[in-house]
């Protein structure tokens, strides 16, 4: 069992290394430090082998869920990922999270900001329904401003239509 978990972790790590973007925004992490309780300082401690680490959250549980074109409804796969996120957040009350909503580039700028907000909100509502306190969660939309993938084909668009749960230190009040 333990071996199996490790294998999964290693694979996940490899997969990430393979498609990881050297850019500091890779993984959809916030472009700007939102400040206050949501500051992202010091959350890199612990590796992906440490189930208590934010790295484990983002890489093993999965910090991203994907959406269909112009949609914000959660797929069964997304719900599975989010249930894992909710469980981890429940077990680690010292952490809060910002949920980032993103859109692909096929849309006008301001509409995509609103669409990203819808996606982030879908995730937030689901996490709350799974028992995470709403006070620990905040949403933000980047619209189409921060794509993860830069090609202009559906392969990339599908990965860019996402919501990312970014763990930060300090639970909300």
């Amino acid at each position: 069992m333990k071996l199996g978990t490790k294998a999964v972790i290693v694979l996940a790590g490899l997969a990430l290394a393979a498609c990881n973007n050297p850019d500091k925004y890779a993984g959809g992490a916030g472009v700007v430090d939102p400040g206050g309780a949501y500051g992202d300082g010091g959350i890199t401690q612990g590796g992906i082998n440490d189930p208590n680490s934010p790295a484990y959250f983002s890489q093993t549980i999965g910090d991203k869920v994907l959406f269909a074109v112009d949609q914000s409804t959660l797929s069964p796969e997304a719900r599975t990922t989010l249930s894992g996120q909710a469980q981890w957040l429940s077990q680690h009350p010292q952490y809060a999270a910002i949920i980032e909503g993103h859109a692909d580039e096929q849309g006008t700028r301001e509409y995509n900001l609103a669409l990203g907000a819808r996606r982030a909100n879908s995730v937030q509502e689901y996490l709350i329904s799974q028992g995470v306190a709403g006070s620990r969660l905040r949403t933000v939309s980047y619209g189409k401003e921060r794509p993860l993938e830069v090609c202009s084909t559906e392969d990339c668009y599908a990965k860019n239509r996402r919501a990312v749960t970014v763990i930060s230190l300090g639970a909300g009040s």
């Binding site: 916030g30 472009v31 700007v32 430090d33 939102p34 400040g35 949501y38 910002i98 900001l113 933000v140 939309s141 980047y142």
Partner: peptide, 9 residues
Amino acid sequence: YTTFETGFP
């Protein structure tokens, strides 16, 4: 204009 300087639009 719209700015993300606080981390949010």
